[in-house]
Design a protein around this nucleic acid. Sequence first.
RNA 1: GGCGACGUGCCCGAGUGGCCAGGGAGCGGUCUGCAAAACCGCGUACACGGGUUCGAGUCCCGUCGUCGCCUCCA
Length: 468
Amino acid sequence: MSPTPVRLHNSLSRSLQTLEPITPGRVTIYTCGSTVYRYAHIGNLRTYLFGDLLRRTLAYLGYEVTYVKNVTDVGHMRDDQTDGGEDRMIVAALEEGKTPLEIAEFYTRAWLEDEVLINIVEPDVLPKATDHIGEMLALIETLVDKGLAYEVDGTVYFDVSSFPAYGRLSGQRVNQTRAGTRVEVETDKRHPADFALWKRAEPGRLMHWPSQWGEGFPGWHIECSAMSMKYLGDRFDIHTGGIDLKFPHHEDEIAQSEGATGHRVVNIWLHGEFLTLDDEKMAKSAGNIIRVSELPEKGFQPLDFRYLALTAHYRSKLDFTEPAMQAAASGLRRLRRAVAAGAETGVDLTAEPMAGYGNRFRDAIADDLGIPAALASAHAVAGADDLTPDQKRALLLDFDRVLGLSLDSPAEGTGIPLPAGAAELLERRAAARAAMDWIEADRLRDELAGLGVRVRDTPEGQVATRRS
RNA sequence: GGCGACGUGCCCGAGUGGCCAGGGAGCGGUCUGCAAAACCGCGUACACGGGUUCGAGUCCCGUCGUCGCCUCCA
């Protein structure tokens, strides 16, 4: 069966277009990953969630997906400085004698652990920048040979004027931007918009590598050109990243890759919008970051956050608030209850009325990743009056291949042990209920509530769940 | 200064000219010892001002407001 056609919003053309894979039936995707010298926060994670939803959607629709997500582990620390607001933890680690690579490994692990908590499927390839210095140097050499880059005193710059298409992605015109408003202009450049492919390592620089231009380290953008083409070839289907990477990062990446190959490399560029907190971008510098691992202490499960992210389209900003998270947690619980109410049976999803619901879901995700609409279709299933509980379960678990909400896990209180003493109170309450001593039963329920345990009475008896 | 996005009901958020999100919260009801859950029902929107059209939340112009990028930010 051939894959379902998908429409996506290409940042390059600023319009929806139908995905036409370079190799029919196969899709190659590259996502700009995290910088691993600090913890990833839920704003960062929203973007990786978007990439996860993209690859899950394409796989669901019948494509064979190759997904590459890189790790930016080229650090720019020096052993004699802490300027520029370097993370205190970085400074402390350096003082302890840790190497930049060890620090990067620590934060890489933390990032990937957070991704696991929100059911992000690991990529097929997770390349690290520091493992690809050779590929970067080869690419830079090609650019120099082609006359698209020039070297000044150990630093190599890309010559923007040699690449007419520069600015096509971002709409920026080179002579209108405010280069050097904050950072002092590097006067070696021929043009302020020229950007570094390779930088000379000054004394004190901790990470540096030998090159034909002397000891140095790569510019930020070249790593993605080198790694994406190494693993996906010099023509691949989709490149994703956060909206903030559009300029200059992706603009520069296009200039490098297309300059070196002489042809288009990426067919579709996809950019995800920000997660905000009080309508402000979540960023370390703004001091408003939240990590996935901090959600439980706020009374939420990590997957509540995944649900929240699914309620907004990837090209829309999403504001993270307490009430929004409460709503997300409630919505997720509703879907899980619907799944739990059904049993595992051989439901034929291609038969009506299941196929109708399946088509609605499929149409939603195939239309520029309409996950919010797809989520609505999941709720339509949960509340449908023409489906049996078993059919609902089968449909929702099928949808969950894309949604990734672990809908088959217990509806609440997931694996959280009950506090000490709760078991005894529950036993006493069961006895009170058997004796129809309602006053004592209600008193014990209040007492349990004081311990953070909620009790529900069902035909099968009491069900205790942990929730504040 | 340049580039870009956005303003939808109590909240979050879909909306691709005519019909429609969805979730949460609230209110009323059914059911259950009570509560919870589930189910049924109810309400409140398209920032503002013009325009195009038989018809505008959706298209065009303007105003106001918010946010992002131009800083090795997702």
